[in-house]
Design a protein around this nucleic acid. Structure first.
Lengths: 219, 219
DNA sequence: TAGATTGTTAATCGATTAACAATC
DNA sequence: TAGATTGTTAATCGATTAACAATC
């Protein structure tokens, strides 16, 4: 599938794809060859029509009445869509607590994001190797980005430093930024920023627990 | 604010709260005492009415025409809502790559989630201390949960192990689970599960970049 | 054939945005 | 007072769900 043909789907649908993929791979391991949208929906606690719509938006394979979808083809199609076979090179700024888990979890690489190198200014980290990636001083960022033609940057520094790091990345030719700091970055119009909020889900979790007074109910 | 009075708000609004909070704290540092919804909305790239609705859902403080809201009061109200002053004790299962960053980032504690201890079965990790928290063998889970009256569990193990760990947590009296594995856990009706999908945002990021052919445009 | 399952069009539901009256 | 800003009611927009015809 070339990138011109990738249809845009909603963020919500995109969020469901990793669950479909994990589910289908488990099914495959259990030697299941065919699967219906109804079964997937029920196992994943989703609406049946939603599953069918998501599949038809992302997959070229068609389901067959009475049979369903071919598990192998669904897996291939979703992996294609998510870019498994289309790895992107990125640099990570901030190799402290926030950034380290990006280097550690190999799922990120499987999802098509390959972190070429990490950068920091903390002398106690600079020069070390984390999960096979070297940590360089921030001063070396420009040289490496240009030499390796990297145009994706990940910001995993404290909020106070994020805008400055962002400016530096932009000056190094970075055109897409994945931002883990909780601020709205100012960037030129040509630069794309995707914000990540690690605390969103924690807030929802906390709210539910407090609301239901879970602790005091149990005690 | 006691937990009976916490109004439910939408997930979307909840996701915006951490941004409001970070923004307001920065404003406070810059000695800004009053702020209008319009200014907040513009700085955070949000709709003005949305900001006002979120504030009125979460805060007891009222804005004043021509003046706006008192920054200090907004901060206090949002922190109360998010449970800063209402810490919950939790156990973490899986102190490998996935789990470590939860121990490392002190923001989680600030958001009201205090991880009392971590558990694993990997003998190379068991017995070590990560960011001040001891890593115990999974066999000691029940004893600790009961002794410390802990009812919140975090699952940060591989997908294959997640359901078993979940069952174990439930048998230890855990009633709320924050699940980082990409599977739908089977739990008794009384147990609450919040799923976290670290790859959702990465998928959206990848989609945008591929769609826009950013790399090839630049090269 | 009968019936299970797909794929799509129409209806519903919920969140966001617009319009506007109230108020300092 | 005039005008900036709030808070709320109504309109819009978009995602989810329901209904149903097509098909193996």
């Amino acid at each position: 599938m070339n990138s011109e043909n990738i249809p845009y789907i909603t963020i919500q649908a995109l969020n469901r794809l990793p669950y479909y993929l994990q589910y289908l791979k488990t099914a495959k391991k259990n030697n299941i060859k065919y699967i219906s949208a109804a079964v997937m929906a029920s196992d994943l606690n989703l609406n049946e029509v939603q599953v069918r719509k998501d599949i038809s938006a992302v997959c070229t394979t068609k389901g067959k009445p009475k049979i369903g979808f071919i598990v192998d083809e669904l897996i291939d199609n979703i992996e294609d869509y998510l870019g498994y076979n289309n790895s992107m090179e990125a640099v990570l700024v901030g190799a402290g607590n926030r950034g380290k888990f990006l280097l550690a979890d190999d799922k990120f690489e499987k999802y098509g994001l390959n972190i070429a190198a990490a950068f920091d200014i903390d002398e106690s980290i600079v020069g070390s190797t984390i999960c096979g990636r070297q940590v360089f001083h921030l001063g070396k960022l420009k040289n490496l980005c240009e030499r390796m033609h990297i145009h994706i940057g990940i910001i995993a520094v404290p909020e106070e430093a994020a805008q400055n790091v962002c400016n530096l990345l932009v000056s190094c030719g970075i055109s897409s930024i994945w931002n883990f700091a909780l601020i709205k970055l100012s960037v030129p119009g040509s630069v794309f920023v995707q914000n990540e909020n690690l605390f969103a889900s924690l807030s929802a979790f906390s709210q539910h627990i407090r609301k239901n007074n879970v602790t005091s109910k149990i005690l």
